[in-house]
Design a protein around this nucleic acid. Sequence first.
RNA 1: AGCGGGGUGGGGUAGCCAGGUUAACCCGCGGGGCUCAUAACCCCGAGAGCCGUGGUUCAAAUCCACGCCCCGCUACCA
Length: 656
Amino acid sequence: MARWLVASAWPYINYVPHLGTIIGSVLSGDVMARYLRSKGEQVLYVSGSDEHGTPIEVEAIKRGITPRQLTDENHEKVKKLFEAWKISFDNYTRTESPVHVEFVRDFYLKVYRNGYIFTQEEELPYCPNCRRFLPDRFVQGQCPKCGYPEAFGDQCPSCGSPLDPKDLINPRCTICGTTPEIRSTKHWYFDLPRFAEKLKKYVEENPRLPSNARNFSLKLLREGLKPRSLTRDVSWGIPAPFPGAEGKTIYVWMEAVLGYISATIEYWRLKGEEEKWREYWFNGARSIFFIGKDNIPFHVIILPALLMASEEGYELPWTVSSTEFLMFEGKKFSKSQRIGVWIDEALEMFPVDYWRYTLLSIRPEVRDTNFTWELFLEKVNADLNDTLGNFIHRTLTFLCRFFDCKVPPEGELTEADRQMLREVERAKEAYDRLLGEIRIQQAVQTVTELARKANKYFNDRQPWRLAASNREEAATILHVASRVVEALASLLEAFTPTVALEIWRMLKLKPGENLKAGHQVALPKPLFRKVSLKEVEEKAGGGVKVLEEKVTPEDLARLGLKVAKIVEVEEVPGARKLYRIKLDLGGGLIKQTVAGLKTYYRADELLGKLVVVVSNMKPVKLMGLDSEVMILAAEDDGRVAILTPERPVKPGSRIL
RNA sequence: AGCGGGGUGGGGUAGCCAGGUUAACCCGCGGGGCUCAUAACCCCGAGAGCCGUGGUUCAAAUCCACGCCCCGCUACCA
């Protein structure tokens, strides 16, 4: 029998993960681990907290604690959260684990002795005040290409040009603001290009890789691999084991990917079976990695190359399930802008299986998908509550009301009954086939679809009509319906484990046990409840989530949209983009605005123009000048056009 | 800029790799049925011809080319 290692990407724990992080990694991995276990396979599911590196060090400094204190705290928190999310890890460990540290050092020493590591001097920005070398992201300054003042050392967010920190004008350290200097430092490199041929073969000959992972990796290989730097001048990390590398640590990415192995070792060491981990990494063991698409190079290129470089004969990743991204209400999840839902707040709002079901049913397998509250309501109310929950509840209630909560015997099956039982088998087959291809989204749908068919069956057969007149036939129908409930429990286990357990409990069965005629079930209680938009609004309030509201004519009226005529345009001393503009709003009313139009319009172009304004803006001061209204303009990729009435109307005309 | 992934009824998705019955499913919408069940459930109907153009083919949403649009990546941000 094959041994399976299920692995999910290690969350970087400078903060709690959000919904997008876990659907691609730990939640998907959990489904697969549960599924394979249910098939009787030998499965080990591992992951852990990724806790080294500059961002965590900086976060700790900000909070006045040590990095270790920070990660101790966050690791405990995240670990507990994953338990609450019912993620069935066999080992959720961390990169500070002594087993990991020891393994990484041994591993790289081996790779070093095998001759795949070399050193090189390079020049990097160094902050004399923080006394540290700065990663590119930690240097900010003016972009040499477009002049944007807040460009990062690796890229300008305004014009998109890739940059080198040395090119920035007036560079500064983002931690303390000091001007960095360029210092020379020596670093150790992993000779990745040496594995290009073998990697190409690996990718090309692995038919299981999803197309995004495959194509992206082949593209990287076509473009040519570069040596990967292995070390950093950062104190918070695993000390590099190479001779002469005192004071250097291993770059976080390059050690965290080895965590999959160290977590396996740690698991078996704790069990007292020191050598057993090898069964999960050698001799035909199969590994499945669950990651987001941003992680493809590390799992399809770098990890396999490192395994090759060890020359120990490790099995390479059997497949990598790389999802696209989950968006939140049409936007990227953003910690700084508070866009999204984090896994701690999610559970404070609704039961874990509401989330698991919704996320799994929109798992971004083909393209980016979008989480919206509207969608959440649809999944919970229509799928879970109305379809699944109601079918189970109506069946068990019927059973208790008419048959003393006892499962009746099968009796004589009609074609419709046989058809229903065939649908159960068909659903199980589809479920197996789809999960075998790691198509979780479709597999979830298969289960809901079965419940739908069961509702139809129940309706068509109308057992309530027969309960008095033809008790035997009614009995047969309820026998069949009960078996569907039983099947739903096992099919739901991987997706919504808490609900599955609850169904087993109501059936008074142990998970996986078969239902027999005469078996007594419990009085049912509803598995789900409906969620209202209002409830979401109340719970999700606090500015964390944004609900898309439809606008009424009254809302439009609130803006006080009016036509106004520009009667005066003046430059604002000292401002690069601003004009001070006076507008005639009709009836002798003159209001002033300060608008950023100077780069788009000359003063004489604006003078006399009829424009659309929001007349009841809350006044603000810009460059010390009052701005009371706002001129509406359209923006298209850097070009700006003022809105103006299509034929002349009186200033002050209302806009409807 | 280059590269990768996409553009399918009003909304959300599947189908595309392995071309082929009336383009599937959920929500929503209009009408009807049932009353066992959590105002649930079931049925019927309206609504797209699959971004555009051109090609390959007996046959294309599915393959190819070009164009337009969206998202992401470009690897010392984790």
